[in-house]
């Protein structure tokens, strides 16, 4: 209940700010972005996040699972270690390094977001499979499940919630990082923020920042719901410690 209050008031605050600024006649020396402009930028923002996220999932989940398999275990340390180290590289650095490699526009922004988005997914997918109690797998083997059956009936259902956590974290991070796409002319709500920065007008910064925040919070909430729904009932009793 209390959580819902926190959640709803934060989202309401963000949306309220957005509506307030957008409906102003004039902000300092300039006009605020129009509703159409807002919609266009928000759409581009979502497009960046979704496309990057889907590609990140397509790379991260299979790769994370693959390195838990016998025969590929040697790859786990460099790949997973690299992914954790990679998370300590600031997102702005990744965006910046893309510019000389790919140039300006939608593509470098997308590549940077994919790299940044794949890291938590990779880590969680690996941990999800790797942390399953070996006794459970052995019990399954002992009862005569085939490899495929163990993957389908035991490993996947047990790992899914943890993988889903990785996807949630990655999506939320991407909504934030996508604001940086504007730096390399990738579009999205970050562009509004940048205009605000250039003219030194905090309200314009908010006009781009507040809807981005609302987007991040809402997506985090929705994905958490999906995650809980995917968690088998027998596992929900356990307390979570991140």
């Amino acid at each position: 209940m209390r959580r819902q209050v926190v959640l709803v008031s934060l989202i309401a605050l963000c949306i309220g700010l957005t509506v307030w600024v957008t409906s102003m006649d004039r902000v300092g020396i300039m006009f605020p972005f129009t509703w159409e402009g807002m919609a266009k930028h928000a759409q581009r923002h979502l497009q960046l996040v979704f496309v990057a996220e889907i590609i990140a999932i397509a790379i991260g989940v299979p790769l994370g699972v693959l390195v838990t398999r016998p025969g590929f275990k040697k790859l786990a340390i460099p790949i997973i270690g690299g992914a954790s180290a990679g998370q300590s590289v600031p997102s702005m650095a990744i965006v910046a390094i893309m510019v000389p490699l790919i140039g300006l526009g939608f593509r470098p922004a997308m590549v940077a977001l994919i790299i940044w988005g794949v890291l938590p997914i990779l880590r969680n997918s690996y941990a999800a499979i790797n942390d399953i109690n070996p006794a459970i797998i052995e019990a399954a083997r002992g009862m005569g499940m085939t490899r495929g059956q163990i993957v389908r009936k035991i490993e996947l259902p047990l790992a899914l919630p943890v993988i889903m956590t990785g996807i949630r974290v990655s999506t939320v991070v991407l909504v934030g990082s996508a604001t940086l796409a504007a730096l390399v002319a990738g579009g999205g709500l970050g562009e509004i923020i940048l205009v605000g920065v250039f003219v030194g007008e905090p309200l314009i910064i908010l006009q781009g920042g507040a809807p981005a925040a609302a987007m991040a919070i809402t997506m985090g909430f929705i994905l958490e719901r999906i995650e809980r729904w995917m968690t088998p009932r027998g596992l929900r009793v356990k307390a979570e410690i991140s």
Binding site: I136, L158, L235
Partner: peptide
């Protein structure tokens, strides 16, 4: 095949 209770499938 029976092992310690830990081998029950939790899900």
């Amino acid at each position: 095949y029976a092992i310690q209770d830990i081998g029950l499938f939790p899900h």
